[in-house]
Design a protein around this nucleic acid. Structure first.
Length: 425
DNA sequence: CGTCTCACG
DNA sequence: ACGTACGTGAGACGT
C-alpha cells in the first residue's frame, strides 16, 4: 500500500461527502419541457416505424430488430460482425452504414436516440424533496485505474453536445440533446465555473515517457496533434491539413489505449468516414514510433514493469494488479499489455485531479469562501460560486489545479463560467 | 444474470 | 487461427 495515495484517498473522503451532500441544482421546468418534446417525437417516430415495418415489434429488442432488418426487409449487412449471441450487430455504427439502404434505418436511429435521452430525463428528475437538488453517489473505490465512478444517478455521462452554429443547426434531436447540460444550473446569486484540464492524459504520457518532442511541444505551446501529423506524414506543421490533424488526434488517443493496428484502422474509418486498412494503420503506427522514440520505449517499459511486478504503477504510486499478463491465452495477455500501458496514464491523471480537489477544497476553507465543488467528471471540476467570489475563485481554481504537481511540462486548464453547465464548460 | 447498446471521460 | 483500442453506469431483453 502506497502511503501518499492512501493519504490522498483519506483526505478525499470529506471532499466527496460535501459534494454528495451539496448536490446540484436542476432546472426542473426546462427538464420537463425537454421531456415533453422527446415524448412527442417518440410517438411520431414509433408510428412511422410500425407503419413501414408492417408489424408491431419491440424496438428495444435487438433480436426482433435484427430479424426485421435482415430477414423481413432483407437488408444486406455491410459488415457482419457478430457478438457472442450470433446476432448480426445492429448498433449505431452498423446501422449508420445502412442508413441509405432503407428509410426505416434512420428512424430506428432516431428512436434509439430519443429513448436514451428520455432515460436521462427520468434520472435527472429525481431531485431530493428537501434540498430540491440532485444528489449522486461518487464511488471512491471500485474502478481499476483510480478514477471515480458515479451512480444513482450517474452524472459523469450526461450528454455533452455543443452546437457549432445555433442558427443553422437543423438536427432537432441534436438541439434537444444540447439542452441537457443547460438543465444543470447555479443557485440564485451564484454562477457555475467549469475547469477542464486540457489533454491531461497526453501530458501524463509526455511526463512518463520524457519524449523529447512531446516535452518540447508542451513546453512551447505547440499544437500536439499538428506536430504528430507532421511527424507521421513527414510534412511541415504549416502543411498539416484538417484531415491529417484528425488522423493524428486519433493516433494520440490510441496511444493512451495501447492501440493495435486493427483498432486504429477501425477508429480511423469511423472518424474520417473513409476506409482505412489495417496496413495503413500499421504504417502510421510504425512511422509514429520511429519518430517518437521516447513514447515507444516508454510503452515497452510499462509492459516490462507490469510483467515483472504483476501490476502497473502511476506516477504517484497507485498500483493496479494485472493478472491478465500471466494468462495462458494470448488474447488475454495482449489485453494485459494494453492495460499495462493505459492504467498508469489514466491513473496518474486521476491522481492529479484528486489532489487538485483536496487542494481546492482546502484553499476554499482557508479563505473562508462559500464556493463549493459540485461535480468531478474525470478531467473537469464544476464549482458553484457566489457572484462576489467569482473573481477570487477563478484565480484560486487556476492556481490550485495548474500547480497541484510539478511536472516537466505545464498543466493547463480551461475555465468557463455561466448560469448553467453548458456555458460553464 | 449475461449480453447488447449507448451516454461520458 | 485467432480478436483488439482504455475506463465507467444504466436500461432493456431474454434465458
Amino acid at each position: 500500500m502506497n502511503i501518499a495515495i492512501n493519504q490522498l484517498e483519506h483526505d478525499l473522503i470529506r471532499v466527496l461527502v460535501k459534494i454528495e451532500l451539496n448536490g446540484v441544482k436542476i432546472d426542473v421546468k426546462k427538464l420537463t419541457d425537454v421531456e415533453c418534446q422527446l415524448l412527442n417525437r417518440l410517438q411520431t417516430t414509433t408510428e412511422k416505424i410500425t407503419e413501414i415495418a408492417g408489424t408491431e415489434i419491440n424496438l428495444n429488442s435487438n433480436e426482433q430488430l435484427s430479424t426485421l432488418l435482415f430477414e423481413t426487409l432483407e437488408l444486406q449487412p455491410k459488415v457482419t460482425s457478430k457478438g457472442k449471441s450470433e446476432l448480426i450487430s445492429v448498433d449505431k455504427s452498423h446501422l449508420e452504414n445502412l442508413k441509405d439502404d432503407h428509410k426505416i434505418v434512420p428512424l430506428i436511429l432516431d428512436y434509439r436516440k430519443i429513448n436514451t435521452l428520455l432515460n436521462f430525463c427520468t434520472q435527472l428528475k429525481e431531485v431530493h424533496p428537501k434540498t430540491k437538488r440532485l444528489h449522486c453517489n461518487l464511488n471512491q473505490t471500485g474502478t481499476a485505474t483510480g478514477r471515480f465512478s458515479c451512480s444513482d444517478p450517474n452524472l459523469q455521462n450526461i450528454p455533452n453536445v455543443k452546437l457549432k452554429d445555433k442558427e443553422s443547426e437543423t438536427d432537432e434531436l441534436k438541439i434537444i440533446a444540447s439542452k441537457f447540460r443547460e438543465v444543470f444550473i447555479a443557485e440564485k446569486g451564484c454562477v457555475l465555473i467549469g475547469a477542464d484540464y486540457s489533454q491531461i492524459e497526453l501530458r501524463v504520457m509526455a511526463e512518463i515517457s520524457q519524449d523529447t518532442f512531446l516535452l518540447h511541444a508542451y513546453n512551447n505551446g505547440i499544437d500536439i496533434h499538428e506536430l504528430t501529423a507532421s511527424k507521421v506524414f513527414n510534412c511541415k506543421i504549416s502543411e498539416v491539413s484538417e484531415e491529417r490533424r484528425k488522423i493524428a488526434k486519433t493516433i494520440n488517443f490510441g496511444l493512451i489505449y495501447g492501440m493495435s493496428a486493427i483498432g486504429l484502422a477501425e477508429s480511423l474509418t469511423s472518424i474520417t468516414k473513409k476506409h482505412h486498412s489495417t496496413e495503413d494503420a500499421e504504417k502510421m503506427m510504425s512511422e509514429y514510433f520511429s519518430q517518437f522514440k521516447g513514447v515507444e520505449s516508454c510503452l515497452e517499459g510499462l509492459v516490462d514493469y507490469a510483467d515483472h511486478h504483476s501490476c502497473s504503477r502511476t506516477l504517484f504510486g497507485r498500483t493496479r494488479l494485472i493478472p491478465e499478463l500471466a494468462s495462458n491465452d494470448m488474447r488475454i495477455r495482449e489485453k494485459g499489455k494494453r492495460l499495462a500501458m493505459n492504467s498508469p496514464v489514466q491513473g496518474s491523471a486521476a491522481d492529479i485531479i484528486k489532489m487538485a480537489m483536496v487542494n481546492c477544497d482546502k484553499a476554499i476553507l482557508e479563505k473562508g469562501l462559500q464556493s463549493k465543488i459540485i461535480l468531478q467528471i474525470h478531467d473537469e471540476l464544476l464549482f458553484e460560486v457566489p457572484e462576489n467570489e467569482v473573481e477570487i475563485m477563478e484565480k484560486l481554481i487556476k492556481h490550485e489545479m495548474e500547480n497541484v504537481v510539478g511536472l516537466s511540462i505545464p498543466l493547463t486548464i480551461e475555465l468557463g463560467k455561466g448560469a448553467n453547465w453548458a456555458v460553464a464548460h
